[in-house]
Structure formats: structure tokens, C-alpha cells
Design a protein around this nucleic acid. Structure first.
Lengths: 172, 172
DNA sequence: CATAAAATGCACATATCGTGCATGATTCAG
DNA sequence: CTGAATCATGCACGATATGTGCATTTTATG
């Protein structure tokens, strides 16, 4: 089996082109059967099964999830929210992290370089609901100094599929 | 069957508490078997199967995907990129949308209110790779006037699970 | 080159899925 | 309220999917 050496990329396991194909296929359809996958990548279903097991065990495949359609669930408002904290040190940061982690409305929260300390993506049924969330939940978190939100006007692209092409550099 | 009326939320189908439980379970584990789900929500496996079919057909469940671990794939750099376009009208917007949609590095792209026109989340193996992407791909798109990026220092929360609690307001 | 290790597909027992059907529950009309 | 119609449900079962032992093939190593 010809495998691609990704040592410079800090990869923990070796991936060949079949593995990469499986990853790509499963990112697109997490419920593809082993038979379907086998047909697409030209291995047997049992080999597909074993390889997927390995990809899961090694942690490359983290989990399988159902993606729901926000609009169909009445979740019509997305906002990006920049948050700046008071300058009090790590205690506050830890608390903010934990609390934000429990809020269903917050889908993403990243600590970022730049003006703000955090950037959040928030999803609510309506603008009043967004306002309510910001005023009564987010702004009330300890240490929050400033909150600035930008409403999403429309979505151009939103995928869970990670880029894999940097892993294709070896021989094929 | 007691269903919750969500007419004010513009829902296309009625959802009862079993449906909501299924949605929650499948958001967390997209490969849960019908038997597992049946046990958790106290319906038969065949009823689970039929309900999931309905949720899929009605579009609430959009798809199932495998979520990969970015770090395990050597994708160590995430950035939020604000993009402003020249003021030329819709032609440029359409082109930008299409082109961005084809770039694997771009996981999310939203048109937003505020200073910038778009906010993108970009994933690359390294800072040089990010720089390369910004300079040689993104900035070269027609109509791009300004690009500003904020590097993600750390991730606090990143989930694909949409909030469902606004749907729980009816009788249980 | 020979040997050891790893990968592979076949076969098959077990698990899972999807659907017909009978039954029970709910809704609707008089 | 009653009876009929409609809808939801679980059981049973045929079809499909999964995972693993095993023999064979392929690859790596000294």
C-alpha cells in the first residue's frame, strides 16, 4: 500500500488515497453504507469497515451528526457577536468560556486576535429573541465589557467539510 | 398524539416531543440505530424509523455527515476574514459568492451587516498557507476591495447542534 | 531472496432496516 | 354522545448491512 507521508503536517497516522476518499465521502454523507463506499473507492465492504474503524479510533473521524435545517425549525436569525472582556485575568476568561459553552444559542465561540476577545455565532428564532439573548444572557456574564453584533443578511456557504487537498501531495 | 403548534414559528410540519427528542439525539449521534433511539425515547424501532423518514422528507433533517478533527488532519489555523467589496452592484456580488463557494478552505461565508460585507471562516494547515490563500486566492477575486483577518487563538465552542428549546413551549 | 508483517476479500453469523398488516387511539361529523 | 374514518403504533419478517474469523495476497524488512 502506497501511503502518503505527512510527517511535516503533524499527522498521527498515515493516510493513503483510499483513506482520504473515505473521509471525503463520509464528510458528505455520514450514513453511506459500507457497500456503497466500497463501490465508490474500489475496495471490499469489509476493508471499508476496517478502515473506517481505524479512522474513528485514531480520532480523525470525531463523530457523525445529523444536520438540521435552521429555517425549517424557525431559526431565522443568525448573528456574529464580538465580545470584549474586562481586563481581569484568567479567572474571568474561564468563567466566560464555561458559561458560553452551555448556551444553546451559541453555536460557535472562538477567542480571536484583533479588537475583540471572542467571536461568537449565535442562532435565534427572531430579532427580539436575539436581543433578549444578548441583553439578558450574554451581557450578564461576569466580565463582559462590550458586546457588538452583526446580523447575518444571507448565507453564502456553510459546510462542515474540512479541506483535504493538502494531504494529497504524495504519489497517487 | 399531543403535538405542539408552532404556527407562529413558520414551521412546515408539526413536531411532538418524540420528534424533538429524535432531532436532539440525531444531532448528537447521527449513526444511532433505530433500536437505540427507540429505547431512549420509548417508541418502537419501526416508529422511530418512520418518524425519521418523515423528518428527512420534510427537510428538517438535511443530511448526515461525519465530522473530522481538524487538528488530526494538520489543519492548525483558523481565521475569521472580513471582506469588503467595491461598490459595483450585483454582478460582482454574484461572482464573489460563486467563487468563494468553490474554495475548500472557506468553511463559512455570510453576508453581514456592519463594516464588512462578508465574514468568512477559513481553515488552513499553517499561517503561511493562510497568507497564501488570502493573497493569491481571496484577494484576487473580482471586486474585492479590502480583506481583514483575525486569527483564532483558541476554540471555546463549536457545535453543529441547533437550539430546539423554543419548540418546547406547548403542552408535554 | 526469504521471512515476517500487514492488507485484503470471502464467507457467514448477527444486527439493523423498512414495510405490510392488524390493532389501538384519535379525530370528525351527525 | 356514538359510529365511522383516519392516523399512529407495534409485531413480524424478508431484505440489507455490519463486523469478524480465516485463508490468501501483498508489502516491508533484513
Amino acid at each position: 500500500m502506497i501511503q502518503t507521508n505527512h510527517a511535516h503536517l503533524n499527522l498521527m497516522i498515515e493516510l493513503d488515497r483510499f483513506d482520504l476518499q473515505l473521509l471525503a465521502e463520509l464528510q458528505a454523507n455520514g450514513r453511506a453504507s459500507n457497500a456503497q463506499l466500497a463501490e465508490r473507492i474500489h475496495l471490499s465492504a469489509s476493508q471499508v469497515s476496517r478502515r473506517i474503524q481505524r479512522l474513528e479510533q485514531e480520532g480523525l473521524i470525531e463523530r457523525y451528526v445529523a444536520l438540521l435545517r435552521a429555517e425549517a425549525l424557525g431559526l431565522g436569525v443568525t448573528a456574529f457577536v464580538s465580545v470584549s472582556l474586562e481586563r481581569h485575568g484568567e479567572q474571568q476568561t474561564g468563567t466566560f468560556d464555561e458559561q458560553v459553552g452551555t448556551m444553546d444559542e451559541v453555536l460557535e465561540c472562538f477567542a480571536v486576535s484583533g479588537d475583540a476577545d471572542y467571536l461568537l455565532r449565535v442562532l435565534t428564532p427572531s430579532l427580539p429573541a436575539l436581543s433578549d439573548f444578548l441583553l439578558h444572557q450574554l451581557m450578564r456574564l461576569p466580565g463582559v465589557r462590550n458586546v457588538k453584533s452583526n446580523i447575518v443578511l444571507s448565507g453564502v456557504k456553510h459546510t462542515t467539510q474540512l479541506p483535504l487537498k493538502h494531504l494529497h501531495h504524495g504519489r497517487r
